Simulated assay, not measured.
Amino acid sequence: MKKKISEDLRSFMEYLQIEKNYSQYTIECYRRDIEHFYMFMAEQGIASIRDCQYVDARLYLTLLYEKQYARNSVSRKISSLRSFYTFLLREAAIEKNPFSSISQPRKSLKLPTFFYEDEMERLFNSCQSDSALDKRNRALLEILYATGIRVSECANIRLDDVDFEFSTILIRGKGRKERYVLFGAFAEEALQTYLQEGRLHLVDKQHDHPLLFVNFRGAPLTPRGIRYVLNEMMKKASLHGKMHPHMLRHTFATHLLNNGADMRTVQELLGHSHLSSTQIYTHVTKEHLRKTYLNHHPRG
């Protein structure tokens, strides 16, 4: 059975990578979910993936609830297995998908946290010194706030990805998708200052590399390093808590919507494939909508 399991999994992983063009992180999540189900099969004495019936799929769902898995985790596991069986069905390896009729639990809505404009100002004020690292920190903060890119995407920006003539940056996002993001005058000024007066002092000419952001040793700044830098800014700005990797991304989207940007434009700028991923930000604009209504409606 192990040989067949590896063949099925290997084929599915190749399908996700080559045909679906999923990121390695996403593929790894699928693999873990499917291997978890194989462990369940072994415990239940189910000899083959082809022997799994609807009643077994229902039992697996019940056990996930009994073990108190979070709703989002249960939903993801069921989705992974449904996709896996759909693939096997397409390959004529099975005759029926036992997960096709299994209803997924509704995902819990986790509201995005973001910074208010005065909090952003405090963050910018925390990196005002003339040191090379503060010049880098300000450029880093300006780019993340100006573009809404992910921390991992920021770490992968190359020097030649930045186009100052058109104020754009080429971003390589999830699933190897590429998109261009815009930046404004504040980000451009901070970036130019960093390149001319910050990065040159941090990078040894003999060990230069093409990545835009560097650490204090001049080596590429990793996503973990970026998160550390941002949390240090939080402390200097006397803001409580830790900065979640997506907080500046959430702030970017929220401030755009609050200032009148349409949902489709924000979706494009964030690099979301589906509008539903962007719509989670609408709740944070309700206060803005309420004020607009009260100010402009005749009976407000």
Rank of each mutant, 00 (worst) to 15 (best):
I78K: 03
A190I: 06
T282Y: 11
N72Q: 00
L257M: 11
P298N: 11
Q206W: 01
G45K: 03
A187Q: 01
R138G: 00
I34W: 10
L89W: 09
M39H: 03
S126I: 02
A92H: 14
H244A: 10
E119S: 07
K77F: 00
M1G: 05
V162E: 11
A187N: 01
M243D: 03
H297T: 12
E7G: 02
K235Y: 04
S277N: 08
L200C: 03
Q17N: 14
K291H: 12
I49G: 00
Y293D: 01
H240E: 15
V162I: 15
I149M: 15
D56W: 08
N156W: 07
S273W: 07
M1A: 07
L230S: 09
G173R: 02
I143E: 11
A185F: 04
I149R: 08
F40Y: 14
L81C: 08
K174M: 11
R50P: 02
S73A: 06
Y25L: 15
P220Y: 09
I157H: 13
A93N: 02
V181I: 05
E95K: 13
V266H: 12
L59S: 08
K2E: 15
H255L: 12
S103R: 10
R122E: 14
K96Q: 09
Y281G: 05
I157W: 12
E119N: 07
Q196F: 02
S108Y: 04
Q192E: 15
Y15R: 01
D262C: 06
P112R: 05
Q104S: 06
S273C: 12
Y194P: 12
F99H: 10
L248A: 12
V203N: 06
S129Q: 07
A185R: 12
E178M: 06
M41K: 03
I94P: 01
I157F: 13
M41Y: 01
R179W: 03
D262M: 10
E178K: 05
L88H: 07
F40G: 04
E14G: 13
P105I: 04
E119K: 06
T193Y: 01
Q128P: 03
Y15I: 01
G198F: 10
L191T: 10
S100H: 06
R172Q: 09
N137C: 08
G148D: 07
L141H: 12
M263E: 01
N231Y: 04
Y293N: 00
S108Q: 11
K96N: 07
L88G: 08
H244S: 12
Q68L: 09
E197W: 14
T168P: 04
Q192M: 15
H207F: 09
L123C: 03
K3V: 00
G241K: 14
Y69R: 00
L269V: 09
D163Q: 00
A187I: 02
M1K: 04
G225H: 05
Q17H: 14
H246V: 03
E153W: 10
L270M: 00
Q196T: 04
L202H: 04
T62V: 06
F252W: 13
G218K: 06
P245R: 14
M247E: 05
L109E: 12
H36M: 06
N259S: 05
T282H: 09
E14F: 14
L111R: 05
